[in-house]
């Protein structure tokens, strides 16, 4: 065994069969004697031991956090990814134009964007932004795909619920045009254009039964499915 001294690697032009070829010339590996090998090995071991000892004597390098106790002062790594969120501007308007790029980017179909024809603007706008947290892998592809930077991965990670259906969120607070379109409307029209939506307003999957305290929702064209049909076993209603 021996180490290659990479600082002595030279680049040369050599002619092989009349063709000039650039060649990297690596110096011969120096043969090490028995004692040399042992010394090098010991040096490597000492290096490792110094590193771990450094960890031992510097408690500030500990990454473990005592979670429930330090909830208030929890430290998150820079690129920590938890619950998805729609970004709202200072006026409380979302930025989503309903282009469905995130829905197409999602590898496991956890996102469903439902659009409607706006009652005020007459154009397509976001009705419901449904995010299935239960099947989300937090891969961040939706955030990267969004052309208007309307999505964000937050640090909210406490998601325990007693019913799986409560993991299906409706991310938009109102159905209506995004901030860009809102800017063109006057005060009165803005109010008319917005229709409130709550967190659990999405089409509930599994067997489609309504949950206690959460009224069944009605989606245009799917009234029957949401209100009266007996529980179907075919999967998500959406």
């Amino acid at each position: 065994m021996g180490a290659v001294d990479f600082s002595k690697v030279r680049l040369e032009q050599r002619t092989l069969a009349g063709v000039k070829i650039p060649v990297a010339v690596v110096p011969r590996i120096k043969k090490q004697s028995y004692l040399e090998k042992i010394l090098i090995a010991l040096k490597g071991l000492m290096k490792g031991m110094r590193l771990t000892f450094g960890y031992l004597i510097h408690p500030s390098r500990i990454v473990t956090q005592q979670y429930p106790e330090n909830r208030a002062t929890l430290k998150f790594p820079e690129r920590y990814r938890a619950n998805l969120k729609l970004i709202y501007d200072e006026n409380g308007y979302h930025l989503c134009g309903g282009c469905k790029m995130c829905e197409k980017a999602c590898p496991n179909a956890s996102i469903k964007v439902l659009n409607r024809k706006g009652p005020v603007t007459g154009k397509l706008e976001l009705d419901r932004y449904i995010w299935r947290m239960d099947s989300c892998t937090f891969c961040n592809l939706c955030v990267m795909a969004c052309p208007s930077d309307a999505l964000q991965m937050t640090h909210q990670f406490e998601n325990a619920v007693y019913d799986r259906r409560l993991l299906i969120y409706n991310l938009n607070r109102y159905a209506g045009p995004p901030a860009e379109a809102m800017a063109k409307l006057d005060e009165e029209a803005r109010k008319q254009a917005m229709e409130p939506r709550d967190v659990y307003g999405g089409p509930v999957p599994l067997n489609g039964e309504p949950l206690p305290n959460i009224p069944p929702i009605v989606i245009a064209g799917e009234e029957k499915a949401a209100s009266e049909t007996p529980p179907s076993t075919e999967g998500p209603a959406a």
Partner: peptide, 13 residues
């Protein structure tokens, strides 16, 4: 405990 601190952890707490 020592293992924990060697690996930037806390060990049993």
């Amino acid at each position: 405990k020592i293992a924990g601190h060697f690996q930037c952890r806390l060990g049993p707490m």
